[in-house]
Design a protein around this nucleic acid. Structure first.
Length: 261
DNA sequence: GCACGGCTGCGGATCTTTTG
DNA sequence: CAAAAGATCCGCAGCCGTGC
């Protein structure tokens, strides 16, 4: 629903956007065609028109980062529908507050790629892999995964948009850690990891280091894969709910914005 | 502990309405 | 048409809560 969004314009926030939608202006084209819009002066409209034309242009170029910079962090979820075919779910396993990254897992919606410390995890490979994408999706990545990757693997993350599912979930009242939220929305995890008594990724890594037993590593990789694979259905659920709740704040529009996508 | 978002109250910018 | 009054709402700062 990025093409229904006006919240990226300067001095336009939630209420103003709602007000624009209320007048039947649901997508960028409606805005450009409208002669006058209540709450926006003629002068301001001319300014906003140029910004919207620029946005149309940047979207054509698949420049997700352009919108990342303009959207409030809590609203980047709006980019999902447009960029979902070029998105990457990401999760890292680490200890010592992110200092020691043991695994970086990526998932493009079809297959997972796991990079393991001292094995196949290095900056060039990570950078090359991430360059393929236009959108990163994480859980709590904005204060954990992304800053730590930036710190210990600098300049591997390209300039692309990022959706943090933790904050997106929070917006629709889904609070708690990833596992708890998955349970709440009905995403099932295999239980075999717990059967090993080790659903704790740090313990698994330490056990692998201590024993050299690959079985521990395999479990850790599986653990990480489950995390990133589950992010996709969660994203889909959260996107639908967010879209619905954002639009339904506007009772007068029947079609509502977002129908363009 | 860190880094981030949420909440709240306030100041001020901007648009609309009113009035003559 | 112009000026003033009124309404709306953005954005900031400070504090608190939260998951990793």
């Amino acid at each position: 629903m990025i093409r229904s969004s006006f919240i990226f314009l300067p001095k336009i926030s939630n209420k103003k956007e709602q007000n624009i939608w209320k007048q039947g202006i649901n997508i960028w084209d409606d805005f450009l065609k409208a002669k006058n819009i209540k709450g926006i002066s003629k002068r301001a409209k001319i300014f906003y028109d140029t910004k919207i034309r620029k946005a149309i242009e940047e979207l054509k170029k698949d420049n997700s980062y352009y919108f990342q910079k303009l959207l409030p962090n809590t609203e980047t979820w709006r980019l999902y529908e447009y960029f979902k075919d070029e998105c990457c779910f990401l999760d890292i396993e680490s200890y010592e507050h992110g200092k020691n990254i043991t695994i970086i897992g990526l998932y493009d919606g079809f297959e997972t790629k796991t990079m393991v410390k001292n094995m196949n995890l290095d900056m060039n490979r990570l950078k090359k892999e991430l360059e393929k994408y236009k959108l990163l999706i994480t859980f709590n990545g904005s204060s954990h995964d992304i800053p730590n990757i930036n710190k210990y693997f600098p300049e591997t993350i390209p300039n692309i948009a990022h959706i943090d599912l933790r904050h997106a979930c929070n917006k629709i009242g889904l609070k708690g850690g990833l596992k708890m939220i998955e349970e709440k929305v009905g995403i099932i995890r295999p239980i075999h990891l717990k059967a090993y008594g080790g659903d704790n990724p740090i313990d698994l890594w330490r056990a692998f280091l201590a024993s050299g037993d690959k079985e521990y590593l395999d479990l850790l990789v599986q653990y990480n894969e489950e995390d990133i694979v589950n992010l996709k259905p969660l994203m889909e659920i959260v996107y639908k709910k967010l879209k619905k709740s954002t639009i339904s704040k506007n009772p007068t529009t029947l079609a509502g914005p977002g129908t363009a996508e």
